[in-house]
Design a protein around this nucleic acid. Structure first.
Lengths: 193, 193
DNA sequence: GGCCGTTTACCGACCCTTCGGTAGCCTAGA
DNA sequence: TCTAGGCTACCGAAGGGTCGGTAAACGGCC
């Protein structure tokens, strides 16, 4: 009945735990003791791996932002008609969201209360601006309705897609693929002319 | 050059201030001193009006939930075809959101970290269930596509609509009416057959 | 109208707990 | 024997909340 011998933590595996706790209670609502308890070690031990709470947040946010940025580098986001490129980006963002659920969950909820958060927000705005210009191109080529401001459309699409972090759980009952489908259908369907 | 004499606070006006602070920094990220500073009084003075921080949160959440519940009582939500009723609810939720921006902003971000939050979440789930059954009716009468689960559709709609609290500011540049229009167009347009 | 008890709105000082973070010791394994 | 990974014990600061008190406004009543 002995406790399963756990592989020692390193920065990555500890970040996994922390990000999950942050996603559950909110960054400000989660204490380092919460993280420690979830990891099964002492609070002090955390500081052996990482310089502080904000560093854990920063690592989580970086994962999320890197994954989002990578989407914009994919061929599907850069080749073909703007309409198709937009669809590719939306679908991939949904997929990445399900893949990095806690990280994205934290990213989508930060308020800019610290330098780390502010920098992440700035990063995210850059991402949004890129997509907004994609929406504008899609409007110009006639594959997206033009009676909605590109910035507003972008925010609405991602508002819908990002909100899934609040309730989607990879429990087998609802598959990521089907949900990504649904998002594309509703968000992009609603933007069709 | 004397300081403008401020009308004394009562519970309602203090709640206004608190809810705005909570919306800005997040409930957990906001301290009672933050609220006091924003109100221009001392932390101690707040306790003359209200029993504690959680009570301020509770009052804000109650406002939000009452406003949402009231929508379901309106004639437009109960008369006519399900498709039209759904559209009415979606539009009214958007309008109420812009009307009670800070309150709804706080409601949409709570995580269930306290009894007050848990109760509010339960309330909100009841609201969502009601709308989900409305979506199902609309599917049955053929005014909404049936290849998406009603619960998922409901969450996607409100995910889009609710996300506006993150960025919409009543600054005159973007009008609440136009934005409510855009939400109905995209969300309900995407659900059309 | 002047006096008096009461209420309202507020303050400064303080209390206790929790928080993020540090210091230093211990131990198993390469 | 050195070190990675962990522990116990602790710290100062910030957090929510309390306490005792005050100034001004508000009736009511002779």
């Amino acid at each position: 009945m002995r406790a399963e011998a756990r592989k020692p933590y390193d920065i990555e595996s500890l970040t996994n735990v922390a990000v999950r706790v942050f996603a559950e209670r909110g960054y400000d609502g989660a204490s380092m003791d919460d993280v420690a308890r979830a990891a099964g070690i002492t609070k002090a031990s955390i500081y052996h791996h990482v310089t502080g709470k904000e560093a854990l947040l920063g690592r989580g946010l970086r994962r999320a932002l890197d994954a989002l940025s990578a989407i914009l580098e994919e061929p599907g986001s850069n080749r073909g008609r703007a309409g198709a490129r937009l669809e590719h980006v939306v679908r991939r963002v949904a997929e990445v969201t399900f893949d990095l659920l806690p990280e994205l969950s934290v990213l989508f909820r930060i308020r800019g209360n610290s330098p780390t958060e502010l920098e992440a927000l700035a990063h995210r705005r850059r991402f949004d601006r890129t997509v907004a210009s994609l929406v504008r191109q899609a409007q110009n080529e006639g594959s997206v309705r033009s009676d909605i401001d590109p910035g507003v459309a972008t925010r609405l699409i991602f508002g819908m897609s990002n909100s899934t972090v609040e309730w989607f759980r990879a429990d087998g009952r609802s598959s990521p693929g089907e949900l990504a489908d649904a998002i594309c259908k509703v968000a992009l369907g609603g933007l069709k002319i």
